[in-house]
């Protein structure tokens, strides 16, 4: 197991080193979309609740950092088509904008397509909150960016590439 893990770590280093160089272009894949889900997480002494439209969160509620909240409210959910190299911009409720750009597409170990996404969160005229984030993922695999304060709680952005 350790050997496999270390090999995995080595592969991660190589992937990082090969950033932008060893992957196939995005021209040959189906047009993917980015699904943005904006979640407000708060803690209430009175009772806990989760918006029924957030089923993907239900299994994460005992996990950090979600375990520190007990009320999850869906603020918005939008889906935008992605085109390689072209940023999709979405205005957040706190005045910042989130930009998501599809990078290149490669083939994963299991033969599935792996997508490189770049994200940026900032506000015009101010230093970027998130200057740059690059992740590699398969379709329908959500990940989360959290930490922005809003209305006494914390915003969580769920990002998922969907086909």
């Amino acid at each position: 197991m350790m050997r496999r893990t270390v090999l995995g770590a080595g592969a991660a280093v190589l992937l990082t080193a090969a950033w932008g160089g060893g992957v196939a272009g995005a021209a040959s894949v189906k047009a993917p979309s980015i699904r943005l889900t904006i979640i407000l997480a708060t803690h209430a002494d009175g009772g806990a609740s989760i918006d029924a439209r957030l089923p993907s969160l239900s299994r994460l509620l005992k996990s950090e950092p979600f375990a520190h909240y007990n009320v999850f409210t869906l603020l918005d959910r939008k889906q935008f088509p992605l085109e390689a190299g072209k940023a999709v911009t979405y205005p957040l409720v706190n005045g910042r904008n989130v930009e998501v750009t599809l990078g290149s597409v490669s083939t994963g170990d299991a033969g599935e397509q792996r997508y490189q996404l770049e994200a940026h969160i900032g506000e015009p005229g101010k230093a970027a909150y998130l200057k740059g984030l690059q992740v590699t993922l398969s379709a329908n695999q959500p990940f989360y960016v959290g930490g922005q304060s809003y209305q006494g709680g914390t915003l969580f952005l769920e990002l998922a590439l969907v086909l």
């Binding site: 893990t5 995995g8 770590a9 592969a11 991660a12 280093v13 992937l15 990082t16 950033w19 994963g108 170990d109 299991a110 599935e112 490189q116 230093a127 970027a128 909150y129 998130l130 200057k131 740059g132 984030l133 690059q134 992740v135 590699t136 993922l137 398969s138 695999q141 990940f143 930490g147």
Partner: peptide, 20 residues
């Protein structure tokens, strides 16, 4: 870079947030 990137998982390649 993640230490144990599963083959089909979400891999974080880079984070740049200088002030946070």
């Amino acid at each position: 870079a993640q230490g144990t990137p599963p083959a089909q998982g979400v891999e974080v390649d880079e984070i740049d947030s200088p002030a946070h």
